[in-house]
């Protein structure tokens, strides 16, 4: 087990190196000279010169790469080009709002989708099942933008049930006042795809031989679904949810943006609009590391829930 973790951590090194190379290639090579990129966005010539010096734009690419690697190793990506805020502070202050929305959203959507998936799989092939699946398909076909625009307009603007946007200082206020409509929208958007996916996980299990054995033992359908099938279906569900966590951080960027929630996703959008490269670079590298760690955690979790898995 320990050996497995150590080997997995060791295997992350080349992947991380690849991420660094990719980011460097994108931003230093394709992205090009900040003087050109920032033309018209920052008019202060002195500031631009400063940035060019920091990046070593005039020096060979390998020196620039070394500068970038040093930044990563020290965890110091410098300051934002447009606001001059330290990047470490940007990430630390943007993370909590994102998590305030995402953690409850993730828990709720997973639980609701599992419940619905079991229910739908139980009546598989019936009219209900088909109607739910077609509704899911239609629901999935409407752009997330439309959900946000309409929900915000109807529930916040017209009916006034929720604040239209904003963010406060107290956690409880944020969670129950500002985050509730975003979470609701997140649920409306994510339940359809999760339900479809989890349903196939459950259906995969329902056709297994052990379900037939459980029936031959005389167990009730309820017990078969909620004990035997659910326990097995939870294995792919848990790994899926774990692996999807880091992507979720970015995935909610539209919601954060519409509701002016000062989170990571909104920060990325702002940075792209302002060509604020250091912010994007830093977030990309951090999120990549988080993804790798969570993938490892997902595998360990897999081991914990599935006695068949041997980690070697």
């Amino acid at each position: 087990m320990t050996a497995y973790i150590i080997r997995r951590l060791w295997q992350m090194v080349p992947t991380l190196a690849g991420v660094v190379l990719l980011v460097f290639f994108l931003f230093n090579w394709i992205g090009g000279d900040p003087a050109y990129v920032l033309a018209g966005k920052i008019s202060n010539q002195e500031q631009i010169d400063n940035i060019r010096r920091q990046l070593g734009v005039d020096q060979p690419y390998w020196v620039q790469l070394w500068i970038f690697v040093k930044q990563i190793l020290s965890g110091d990506f410098g300051a934002s080009w447009s606001t001059n805020e330290r990047i470490s502070s940007i990430i630390l202050t943007r993370l909590p709002p994102s998590l305030t929305v995402l953690v409850p959203l993730l828990i709720l959507e997973t639980l609701i989708a599992i419940g619905l998936a079991l229910a739908v799989a139980y009546v598989r092939g019936s009219l209900t099942d088909r109607m739910v699946m077609i509704l899911c398909t239609i629901g999935l076909s409407i752009s997330i933008l439309v959900y946000i625009i309409v929900f915000q307009y109807v529930f916040a603007y017209k009916l006034g049930w929720f604040p239209v946007q904003g963010w406060g200082d107290s956690f409880a206020e944020n969670l129950f006042r500002y985050a509730s409509l975003p979470i609701l929208i997140g649920l409306a958007v994510s339940i359809a795809p999760n339900l479809r996916l989890f349903r196939t996980f459950v259906l995969d299990e329902i056709n297994q031989d052990y379900v037939r054995t459980a029936r031959a033992k005389g167990l009730s359908e309820n017990r078969i679904m909620w004990v035997h099938v659910l326990r097995n279906a939870s294995i792919p569900i848990i790994t899926y949810v774990m692996a999807a966590l880091p992507a979720l951080l970015i995935g909610a960027f539209l919601i954060e943006r519409f509701f002016s929630i000062p989170g990571i996703g909104r920060e990325v959008i702002l940075a792209v609009e302002r060509s604020d490269f250091p912010v994007i670079k830093a977030i990309t590298v951090y999120v990549a590391v988080a993804t790798m760690v969570f993938n490892l955690l997902a595998d360990l979790m897999y081991k914990a829930v599935d006695p068949r898995v041997q980690l070697r």
């Binding site: 990719l22 931003f27 394709i30 060509s275 994007i280």
Partner: peptide, 24 residues
């Protein structure tokens, strides 16, 4: 696989946005 895991360790949307940022 290395190439894949590099692309795969960056969430898809972030990757798109990063490309969008540099491709002016």
């Amino acid at each position: 696989n290395w190439f894949y895991s590099v692309f795969n360790s960056i969430p898809y949307l972030l990757l798109i946005l990063a490309f969008a940022a540099v491709l002016q």
